[in-house]
Every structure is written in C-alpha cells, then in structure tokens.
Design a protein around this nucleic acid. Structure first.
Lengths: 336, 336
DNA sequence: GCCGGCCATCGAATCGATTCGACGGCCGGA
DNA sequence: TCCGGCCGTCGAATCGATTCGATGGCCGGC
C-alpha cells in the first residue's frame, strides 16, 4: 500500500500523487478529488522512513533526559510531557533518550545516525561533552540550562540566581539572621551543574549584603537524604530559622522530618526556595516559593528548536525566565 | 558521508562495506580491517532513515502515554523511564506519543506511517479503539493492563483484584468493620478503566465475604480531590476506620487532610492500598501497601514486544504480576 | 593439467517516497 | 491560422542503505 498503488488506482503517476498531497505544485481539482478518494478509501499515509530519506529530515526531535537510575524530579517530569505536547503542535514526534555521562550508545546512535532533526538537552553541565558532540555533528539543539561562555548557543533557563536572591531578601526582610541553602547532590555540584552553582552564588552574595550568616549544604536527590539533611541542620546549627531549597526530590523527607520534629512552619521555621508549583502547593503548609514554569520552558524550547532547524545559520537565541515568587504560608517573621 | 564514501576510500564496493558492518556474509580480514579503519577515521554510521527503508523496520518502539493534560502518576513516570532503559538494551529507541481518546494525529501518524516496529500502550480501557486500530494495522503491540476477552492478546498487568483482596483481608484480620476504597476518577471509571473496575470487584467481594461494610468512592487524580474526598468520608461515614486506595495522585491531599484532622495513623485510622513503593515510603507514616513494580513491568513489556515483533504469528503471551504487600506502619488494630 | 567448488567481492535491484526537468495540450492574441 | 505561454502531468533521478544473484580467482583433488 504505497504511493505507486494509489497512483495506479487513481490512474495518474506517482509524482502527481505526491504533489496532490504536498501541494507543492498545482494539481487539477478533478485529479485531486480522484486521488483523495482513493487515499481515503485505502487509508493511505506516506511511509515515514521513505519520506525521511527523500526529504533529508525525520520530523522527529530527541529529548535527552537524565538516566533512569537517577529519578526524574517532578519538574522534569512535567517538562517531558510538555515537550511532547508542544512538539505535537508542529506535527513532530519526540524520541526519548537517556544520557548521563559523556556519551552512551543511544545518544551516539541518534546523533551520528541522523535519527532526528534536532535535540533538546536537559540538565546540562558547565562542561558538557554532549554539547561539543552536537556542535561537531552540526545537529541543531537547544539546552535547558545554559553554560557561561561567549559562544553562540540556544537555550532556555530559569534565572536561579535572581530567584534565590529574591528568596533571601524576603527572609532578610522578615528579620531572619541565620539561613541555610539546601542544594542538590554533591556529585551534581562537583560535576558543574549550573543552577546549583548559580543559586549558591546568589545566596551567599545576598546573605553577605544583608548581613546574614548563610550556609550551603548539599543534599542527595532523594527523600531519605532530605530527612537526614534537615536533622543535621537542626543538630549542628540550631540557630538557623529559615531554609531555602532548590532540591525538590528531597522535599518528602523534609516534610517527614518536620513532622517528627514537632516544629511549626512558619512559626518556628520558615521555608522557601525554587520549587515546582505542584510540589509547593502539596507541601503542608504550602510553600512560599518561585514556581518553575515547566510548561512554558518546554514550549519555548521547542519553539526555539524548530526555529533553529528551519534556519541553522540564524543568530542564536535564548530565554531566561524569571517566574514570580508566590507567597503561600511557609514563611513568616523570625521566631522570638 | 554515506556508505559510498566509505566504499570509495576503502577501495571496495558498497555492498562489501555493508557486509563488513552487518556480518551477514564473510569478508576477508584484510578488507574488513581496511573498512573499519576508514569508518573509525570518518566516524561513519549508517543513516537511520535509509536503513529503515531498506530493512523494512525502524528499530524504534512507540510508548503511548496518557495525554499531558492529565498528569502522569509517579508509577507511570517510573514506567516511562524504565521502558526507555529496557529498550536501550535492545538498541531500540522509544518514541513518546500522547494519546487519550480514540485517535489523535500523532497516534495515527505513528500507526499508518509505519514509524515504529511496535507499540506499548499504557492505561488502556476495556473497550479501546486504539487496540482495534493496531490490530487492523497489523502492528505488534503490548498493552499495560488487559481487557477481558477471549481473543489473543499480549499484555503485562498487575493483579489489582488479588492485591486489593489481600489488603481487605489484612484489614479484616485487624478487626476493622467499616472500610472505604478510594478509587480513581469518575471519568476513568466510567470509561471502563480495568484496574479500577477489578479493584472494586475484589474489594466488594471480600468485604461481603468477611462481613464488613465496604464503600467505594471515586476521587479525581489530584491532591485537592484527595483532600476533599477524605474530608467527605470523615463527615459522611465517621464509622470508617480503614482506607484502601489505588489513587496515587490523590495521596498528597490525603496526607494534608490527615495532618489537619489531627488523626493518628494507624492508631485512629488504617491506610493501605496499591501504591508505588516510593510514594508509600515517602508517606508519613510509611504506607503498608502493595508496591507496583514499575521497572519489572516495563522490562517485561519490552521483552514481550520484542518477541512479538520477531515472530508476529507466535501465540500470545502475557504476565500478571502479583507483588507482595509490604508491611510498613500505616495499618493497625481497629480503634477502641 | 584440468576441473569443481568455495570464498570474497561486485553490480544491480529494491525499499517508498520527493523533486526536477520536460512535454503535451489548451487558450488567447496577433 | 499560427505561435507563445501556461497549466497539468509524467518519467526519471535521487536519497542511502540492504540483499540477492553472479562472477572471478584460488586451491585442492584426480
């Protein structure tokens, strides 16, 4: 059931069928109608592989996600779904490829095998081998998160530093004097994970500026670690009255630890940070936090990628989102 | 940089390069070495589209997920990641396609366009148009969840009914007399969502058998609904001392409602159900529950699908998993 | 020394589309 | 009436692989 079959039944040549379908050359209305009847009747649709070969493009994007071992956070999950949805509006399919380190088989397969027209890269590091690989292969790509570097690049990111600054200012305004930033895992930070580094920079800077004592602790991306981390903070720094967190995966553990400690939020302790809206709302009490706009980022990333694919030589573009900090009920005046 | 280029540089024909790569015909060691040198030097890899066209297979699977509008639950998320990982061990890529109702563009594009070699269908309904569509298109597929029907079909599922039966027996053993099943959303149940229907059947059956009064309530798949649902149960059926839930998405709301109510689990109320391990562990207190083995299901689904692709005429196979109910600390003797 | 057979390799067909150049027919203008 | 141009259609080349049948050369056996 290929284009030849349709052509035969409609009594025309294969090229005419192709033109009737694509509209790239005029076809008489009578012929077009006949062709469309046959197509509807047989339920024909062009073979994707053949079309990809002939056109030189696959109508497919690749979304490179962190490897399955490390759990996706809630934000990342929403992001994946939104990318698929955004791509669908362009009639593009999305290939999911896990990739952690430098390069694994599936990443290499996609890049060298020309399986896709473009790539969206999640959770990039400051020095990321995959970025270099994509540039070398001349495959259009957009990164989620950006690297500090003059070179032209296409990316979408959340301004972690600005958001964390706002959070710390907010706490300072409320009178807090001893604050802690709960960052991501040691390994991620050591590997040069941008958001964590920039959050730290912003945190320490504002803390100093406002005369607060600020400490940063790394916490593995899992609930157990969140619990342990909280308990350690209570033990080692009992003077701390406010937490700023960028570690979503650790939140359930924090919640549990809070529960056990008997502390009241925000009377005894204030909590804020950069957190997916859903997670912030589901916390008890709901967290005052900067809501990461995953859907918007996904939409923008796909838009940018489509644009770059259409014109690979266009000057690079990017978007730095700075969502609002939503006041909920987890922050309050310094106790006593 | 195609196979012809490699052939030219190695001084052989294109077919010889192909055979050297695939090993489907012998190639002299000297020639093979020369070819491999050129390939390594140029970093050549066969064009995926051309190969797909020639071979008649794409080396790609499609994973059909619920539409983005409805959030993926935690189990489903883990499942997606695990499918990708399992497929990678076969050197297969995974195309993500959201599809809810009968058929949308991307689902139809994938099926008719022969974009993939096989399909994994999540969250199927008892009467699912997509199943019929795939059968008609003769595209191999495996469903997550199964339909009651004599016809041959390939699927992987969790035995919700058996698990719920166990949960109710467990509660009956502890002396509970009034129990409620928190099911999935009205719409899903009305649409004929198998796990919810089977859970209900098992729940009511055992309740009757053990002389309990059992009620079933539907709850939308979101935290807010979980909270409202809990409050309604407390108001309308204060005699209830135990909850069985299969609604993971509503758990955060349940947690919040519990917190507000001041009830102690399990002293005042027992909670159990079928819940992803991670969610059960992150609840406070950790839930006694049947852990849905998402990774194992994903692995099995991919294995089955690969098998079916290799031999489309093989007799159908399936797997009905019955994970253990893990005793944690959310169930206890009936109060008073 | 000749012949049969096997091993390695080649050339050509094939997969199913897109796209370009060419061609035929019809219409209108001179 | 003849000719130029445009509209619609066709045939063939192309994309980059796989695969089948054929062929050439070398070796061993008689």
């Amino acid at each position: 059931m290929n284009i030849g079959e349709i052509a035969k039944r409609a009594g025309v040549s294969r090229s005419t069928v192709s033109y009737a379908l694509s509209g790239k050359r005029p076809v008489s209305t009578a012929t077009a109608r006949r062709i469309n009847e046959v197509i509807d009747q047989l339920g024909y649709r062009p073979n994707a592989s053949a079309r990809a070969l002939a056109e030189g493009r696959t109508r497919t994007l690749s979304l490179v996600i962190p490897p399955a071992g490390r759990r996706l956070t809630d934000v990342q999950l929403g992001f994946v779904a939104s990318v698929v949805e955004a791509a669908a509006t362009y009639d593009l399919d999305v290939l999911l490829s896990p990739s952690g380190g430098d390069h694994d088989r599936s990443f290499e397969r996609i890049v060298t095998g020309r399986r896709v027209d473009g790539v969206i890269l999640m959770e990039i590091l400051l020095e990321d081998a995959r970025v270099a690989r994509l540039e070398q292969a001349a495959l259009p790509f957009v990164t989620i998160g950006h690297v500090e570097r003059p070179g032209a690049s296409w990316w979408v990111d959340v301004d972690y530093e600005a958001l964390i600054r706002r959070c710390v200012h907010h706490l300072a305004d409320l009178g807090h004097e001893h604050v802690v930033l709960v960052s991501r895992s040691d390994e991620l930070v050591a590997a040069g994970y941008g958001p964590a580094l920039r959050a730290t920079a912003g945190f320490l800077d504002v803390a100093e500026q406002r005369g607060l004592t600020g400490h940063v602790v790394c916490c593995a991306d899992e609930p157990g670690a969140g619990q342990a981390c909280f308990e350690e903070i209570r033990r080692n720094r009992p003077e701390v009255t406010a937490l700023v967190t960028i570690n979503e995966a650790a939140l359930p553990g924090l919640q549990r630890a809070l529960h056990h400690s008997g502390l009241h939020v925000p009377r005894d302790l204030s909590i804020t940070g950069v957190i997916a809206k859903r997670l912030a709302e589901d916390f008890s009490p709901p967290l005052t936090a900067a809501d990461v706009p995953a859907e918007e980022m996904a939409r923008l990333a796909v838009d940018l990628l489509v644009e770059r694919i259409a014109d690979p030589d266009a000057t690079s573009r990017h978007a730095l989102l700075e969502p609002v900090v939503s006041l909920r009920s987890s922050t309050g005046a310094r106790p006593r």
